[in-house]
Design a protein around this nucleic acid. Structure first.
Lengths: 154, 154
DNA sequence: ACACCTTGGTTCGAATTTGAACAATTGGGT
DNA sequence: ACCCAATTGTTCAAATTCGAACCAAGGTGT
C-alpha cells in the first residue's frame, strides 16, 4: 500500500455515482414498498426468490446467499414473515439440520399485489432513465462485478 | 397499475446486477474498513466529506444530504466520531440553531491512514474490474440516475 | 410588533442488522 | 466403525438505522 493509485476523475465519478445512486435507490424503494405493501425491500426480495424457486421453497442458507445477507438476518426476517403468514418453514427430509422457507398462498397474493408498483418504481429510478445501450453495458458490467465478488467470498 | 410493463431479460439483468453488486460491494467495503481502520463505511464517508469541504467542516443538514442518510442517523454517527475524537462540533455564528461538524487533526490522521486501503478495495471490487469504456458509461448513467432522484426528492 | 409556516438538530422508541457463540449433524479420510 | 473438520440454523448482545415528535429559532407577510 506504499504508493496507492488514486482514482482519476472518471473513476471517481463512477464510484461516487455508484454509491450515491445505490443509496438513493434503496431509500426510494424502501419507502415505496413500505407504504404500498407494508413490506421492507428485504422481505419483498425473500418473496421474490421463493416465488421463483421450483416449488416455492429454498433452504435458509441458499436463500441467505441469494439475498446477500447474513444467516442471522435471514432467520429474523423469515420469522417476521412467518408471523405475517406470508412464509412458512418446512424441515428438510434429507438433512435434519436443514430448513426450507416456503412461500404461502397469502405470500403469493401479497407479492402479486406488490409487484406492479415495485416494478414501476424500478423503471422510474433506473431502467427508464437509461438508454438501451447504457442498460446493456450496465448489465454486463455489474454482472461481472457480482461474479467476481461471489467468487472472492469463497 | 393495470397493465404493468414487466422487465425484459436485459432490464432484469441490469436491475438484478445492480442490487446484487451494491450489496456485495457494501459488504466488502464495510468489512475492509472495519478491520483495517475500525471505521464503518458511513463514518469513513463522513470524514471524506468533511475533509473535502473548504474548511474541513459542514453543516449537519448539508452533510446528511451528501451522505444520503437521515438527520437522526447523522446525529448518531457524528456523536460516535466525536467520542473517538475524529470529529468535533462547532456552532454556527449566523444561525444559532446551526451546527458544524468539523474534522479534527486526529480525524485527518485516521483518514490518511485508511484511504489507501479503501481505494485499493474500491479498485478491486469495481474500478479495475471494468474497461475504461464501461467505466465511462457507468459514470454517466449513474450520474443521471442520481440527479433525477435528487431532483425528485425535493 | 405579531401570528405563522419553515428549518435545523436532537431525542426517543421500534425495527433491523451483524458477528460470535452455540448445538446438532454431516461427511469424509483413515 | 471412528475421529474431526465443516455445515446448518438459531440465539444472543451490541450497533446502527429510521421516522415521528419535539423544541428552538429563523423569516415572512400584514
Amino acid at each position: 500500500m506504499d504508493e496507492p493509485r488514486w482514482l482519476d476523475e472518471r473513476e471517481m465519478a463512477a464510484w461516487r455515482g455508484f454509491v450515491v445512486a445505490s443509496n438513493l435507490i434503496e431509500r426510494r424503494l424502501e419507502q415505496q414498498l413500505k407504504e404500498s405493501a407494508g413490506l421492507s425491500h428485504t422481505q419483498y426480495e425473500i418473496l421474490v426468490q421463493l416465488s421463483a424457486a421450483p416449488d416455492g421453497s429454498l433452504r435458509m442458507t441458499d436463500l441467505a446467499d441469494r439475498l446477500v445477507t447474513s444467516k442471522s438476518g435471514l432467520t429474523y426476517q423469515v420469522t417476521q414473515l412467518e408471523k405475517s403468514g406470508l412464509v412458512g418453514r418446512r424441515s428438510c427430509p434429507s438433512d435434519v439440520r436443514g430448513v426450507f422457507a416456503e412461500i404461502t398462498e397469502q405470500g403469493w397474493r401479497v407479492l402479486r399485489e406488490a409487484a406492479p408498483g415495485h416494478v414501476a418504481t424500478v423503471r422510474e429510478v433506473l431502467i427508464d432513465v437509461l438508454t438501451p445501450e447504457q442498460l446493456t453495458v450496465l448489465a454486463e458490467s455489474l454482472g461481472t462485478v457480482g461474479e467476481r465478488l461471489r467468487a472472492a467470498e469463497k
